[in-house]
Amino acid sequence: MRPWEANIRQVVPYVPGDQPGGDRLIKLNTNENPYPPSPGAIKALRELETDRLRKYPDPAASVLVEALAGYYGVEADQVFVGVGSDDVIAMSFLTFFNSDKPVMFPDITYSFYKVWADLYRIPYETPALDGDFNIIPEDYEKENGGVIFPNPNAPTGIYMPLEQVEGIIKANQDVVVIVDEAYIDFAGRSALELIGRYENLLVVQTFSKSRSMAGMRIGFAIGNRRLIKALNDVKYSYNSYTMNLPSIVMGTESVRDKAYFKETTDKIIATRERAKKRLSGLGFTYPDSRANFIFASHPRVPAYKLFEALKQEQIYVRYFGGERLCDSLRISIGSDEEMEELFAFLERYLKDFS
């Protein structure tokens, strides 16, 4: 090692899902929405005055913040926006998890949590999910430096009822508890219902899944105004202009287009429920997903072998590997047409294993 290398921060990076190119592929590996952004968002982009791009955007993204506040029934100073929920959560780790005590998150969950903890040198503990991949709330009833977990969880898709979520928050009122709700719009009741009761609760959501805007990178957090002020203080000490103008403009119109939002989320939920039945008919098993993906395994076919066979057909799903995950594939919910192509291939392929 060269002397200057000794002072380089060493981390094991997060590995994102493949972003393959081509016109004929079926992309079911990164939980993107198969439907376009709302008509209002598309119209706003087309009509955007390009001269505005030479100027810095509003650092507070006020129009978007106010739209989100109105939509969710909170005050504007309870909303923080960032460049995707990854940016919001990374900023939250940096802002809130500064104790010598370990932050707690599940052993099987969004794998970026470990990366951020290592990057910021935050100690952490990872209580194990039970045999059915459920979070055990009692495991979080111990002294810690903060708690974060997704609901629904990733990559399992399991949704924790709001009563259990509240139990974890209630047991940890001396630290900040972050509920990562990237997939909540496909699931059930949101922890946003609890914001008024718990000043230590921060709820994070994203436009990447249910709002069809993964390419625009918009995420947000809602919580007590003191938490939001702390986040903004860190943001303005790091990078004032985090959100670009097209994201602010399109995001605002997406929030306003309530009917389209409901229409597309309802479509995905309906397709997901049909996909569960089709997968069951083909012999797959899976946790009961409430997200826009299904974490499925087959008793006769190794997951990695099936992953490679699908890729040869230009059908991309996600394989994680590692202990307890290596037997399953995470299959994003695509359009009905995309899912039919997936099932047609699976029916042909699995005949050889009957």
Rank of each mutant, 00 (worst) to 15 (best):
S190H: 11
I184T: 08
K229Y: 11
A221D: 03
I184M: 12
A221I: 01
N200T: 13
S212G: 05
S208G: 12
E181G: 07
K229C: 01
M243L: 15
L245K: 04
V234S: 08
I195W: 05
Y241T: 11
V175F: 03
R225S: 14
I184H: 05
N232F: 10
A187G: 14
N239C: 09
F186W: 09
I178L: 06
G196W: 05
I218E: 04
A214E: 11
G219C: 12
G188H: 04
Y183H: 15
D185N: 12
A182Q: 12
R211N: 11
Q205C: 02
Y241E: 11
S237A: 14
V204Q: 04
G223K: 12
G196E: 10
V177S: 01
Y183F: 14
A221M: 06
E199W: 02
V179S: 01
V177C: 00
F207T: 09
A182T: 12
N239T: 02
A191D: 09
N232M: 12
M213Y: 06
V177G: 04
Y183M: 13
I222E: 07
M213K: 04
L227K: 02
G219E: 09
S237R: 13
S212P: 08
E181P: 09
E181R: 02
S210E: 10
V177T: 13
S190P: 13
E199F: 02
F186M: 09
V179N: 04
V179M: 07
L227F: 05
N200V: 10
V234M: 13
